[in-house]
């Protein structure tokens, strides 16, 4: 992890309530797709964790949804303004396990980290399938970008305004794949867990105090012991996850 000052080069609405933020700064501490950054915002005590959508040696792209005061404040920032971020946080996805035809599953804003992962796997010569789930066409984004990155894209929307009607698991029906990677809201991850037929990895969210392993604010129980979502995660392997029990 390092603390860096990034400069905003673009902060643009790309779908309903969804923004793409392009930033210039040092990415030397980033080592894997699926890691995240923790953003300081003026007047907010805690930083805001956001997954890296993709990055290169001098820039990073984030995609975020405005849900509260912090993300709305972020949306009001303009090109040229600076952001104080902790970068290179979390473990990220392990691409070595993907096999030849990995399936990438992204729901809502959880589709964002799949983009960098998709590009990396395509670059390794894998035939990548991407299943995306959104509430509606208005909230969907990056469908063309995934396709131009070289993936086969499957789409589902809850209201049926684009792709098949239903949850992302609908778009995955009868697919063949070697491994999977999934990111999205908790109910989606649970549905994916019941739908998949291979091993894979899930990326989780939790409320964070620090984002780098110091406070034990984000711990979760797994079959391999207690893990900090911010440091030992956010990516966990399917085989170690203890899913919440619903009464």
């Amino acid at each position: 992890m390092t603390q860096e000052i990034f400069e905003i080069t673009e902060n643009r609405l790309i779908a309903r309530d969804i923004y793409r933020l392009h930033l210039l700064g040092s990415t030397a501490a980033m080592s894997a797709q699926g890691q995240f950054v923790n953003i300081r915002l003026d007047g907010k005590f805690l930083r805001r964790p956001i997954s890296v959508c993709c990055y290169d040696h001098e820039s990073v792209t984030l995609i975020y949804k405005t849900v509260g005061a912090g993300t709305r404040q972020l949306a009001a920032m303009r090109a040229g303004e600076k952001l104080d971020m902790l970068v290179g946080l979390g473990n990220g996805f392990d691409v070595s396990k993907s096999g030849t035809s990995p399936l990438l599953i992204g729901g809502g804003v959880g589709a964002a980290p799949m983009y960098g992962l998709c590009r990396e796997l395509v670059a390794q010569g894998k035939s990548v399938i991407v299943a995306l789930g959104f509430n509606s066409a208005e909230e969907s984004y990056y469908i063309d970008e995934f396709a131009s990155a070289g993936a086969q894209v499957l789409l589902a929307t809850v209201d049926g305004s684009a792709g098949v009607r239903g949850f992302v698991t609908k778009a995955m029906e009868a697919l063949e794949y070697s491994y999977f990677y999934a990111c999205g809201p908790m109910p989606m991850l649970e549905a994916v867990n019941s739908a998949v037929n291979t091993d894979g990895q899930f990326s989780f969210e939790e409320r964070m105090g620090c984002g780098f392993g110091a406070c034990m604010g984000c711990s979760c129980k797994t079959l391999t012991g207690s893990k900090r979502i911010c440091r030992d995660g956010p990516v966990l392997e399917k085989g170690e996850i203890l899913w919440p029990t619903h009464e």
């Binding site: 805690l46 711990s219 207690s226």
Partner: peptide
């Protein structure tokens, strides 16, 4: 000790709440 269930963290004006 594993500690308390999550969420364990909340933001406040100029501070935070933890229930680690």
């Amino acid at each position: 000790r594993f500690g308390n269930p999550t969420p364990r963290i909340a933001e406040c004006t100029a501070g935070m709440i933890n229930s680690v």
